[in-house]
């Protein structure tokens, strides 16, 4: 949480803060392959990724980093309209070329964040997996992660998600007991369940899980997305606007069905 400073004289405040950002785990040292796969990922949800900060995690290829062209990587990531923030898990012998290329070297957050198996059925498996880590968004609603079983976490939000708030449930579903406001964002790696109206943006399966679904008691969202396939509600012709609905992904199309 940031506060206005108590001392109004200093022109700046420098503070450590956790921020939402994407971590790019690379499983290859071939820059061309990495960028190709990243571009495909981005194209799944261009508005979501546009100019979003990204950190590269080299854990999986830490021993082969001599082969990686760090300059080409940073330039390539920029060209894809991401903002490269830093890199982590780089071995000492390549530090010089890493810093020369303009990367900031970050400490690894925690061992638990180390490489996840590519279990999600994403359309690409050429050596890249985007995941979100370490996110403590400034404005996010408080939430209580519950029930850690089978590696799934369910996040339960027991009050409305307000305009300007963003809530994200990594590695699992999100359940909103109330409604979501216009201008809010609800994201989950798994499914999104809302026991009220959805009026903001709702993104399920943001990590590529195509089996994720969205359930709501009143469909009034601005934008809905599953596994990067997004759609503005105003562009969809459905009789279910304002009604209880379930949204799933069939091929490249979002399917909106009534709740039975």
């Amino acid at each position: 949480m940031s506060h206005p400073s108590t001392d109004s004289v200093s022109p700046i405040d420098l503070k450590g803060e956790m921020n939402m950002q994407n971590i790019l785990h690379i499983h290859s040292t071939e820059v061309r392959d990495i960028l190709h796969a990243l571009a495909a990922k981005r194209d799944e949800a261009p508005p979501f990724f546009l100019r979003s900060p990204i950190t590269v995690d080299c854990k999986a290829v830490e021993s082969e980093l001599e082969a990686l062209d760090f300059t080409a990587l940073i330039e390539g990531i920029k060209a894809l309209s991401f903002v490269p923030v830093g890199i982590r898990n780089v071995s000492d012998d390549v530090v010089e070329s890493v810093t020369k290329a303009g990367w900031a070297i970050l400490r690894d957050s925690k061992a638990k964040k180390a490489v996840k198996p590519t279990s999600t059925e994403s359309t690409d498996n050429t050596g890249v997996q985007a995941s979100s880590g370490d996110n403590t968004d400034n404005d996010s609603a408080e939430s209580e992660p519950m029930n850690e079983s089978l590696g799934n976490r369910v996040m339960v939000i027991n009050r409305p998600v307000r305009s300007g708030q963003q809530v994200y449930s990594p590695n699992g579903d999100i359940v909103v007991l109330s409604q979501t406001g216009a201008g809010s964002e609800v994201l989950a790696d798994g499914s999104v369940h809302v026991y009220g109206n959805i009026a903001g943006r709702v993104l399920a399966g943001v990590n590529g899980d195509r089996s994720a679904r969205i359930f709501c008691q009143g469909l009034e969202a601005e934008l809905i997305a599953i596994a990067g396939h997004y759609q503005l509600l105003d562009e969809i012709d459905t009789p279910l606007k304002g009604q209880p609905a379930m949204i799933s992904l069939d091929g490249d199309k979002l399917v909106i069905e009534p709740m039975i």
Binding site: M1, D139, P160, R162, S163, G181, G183
Partner: peptide, 19 residues
């Protein structure tokens, strides 16, 4: 109404009570 929704979010996340 939308601005009020926004301010409600801030009341819930940035007030001393919330902290």
């Amino acid at each position: 109404v939308r601005d009020s929704d926004r301010i409600l979010g801030i009341l819930q996340s940035k007030s001393r009570k919330a902290e």
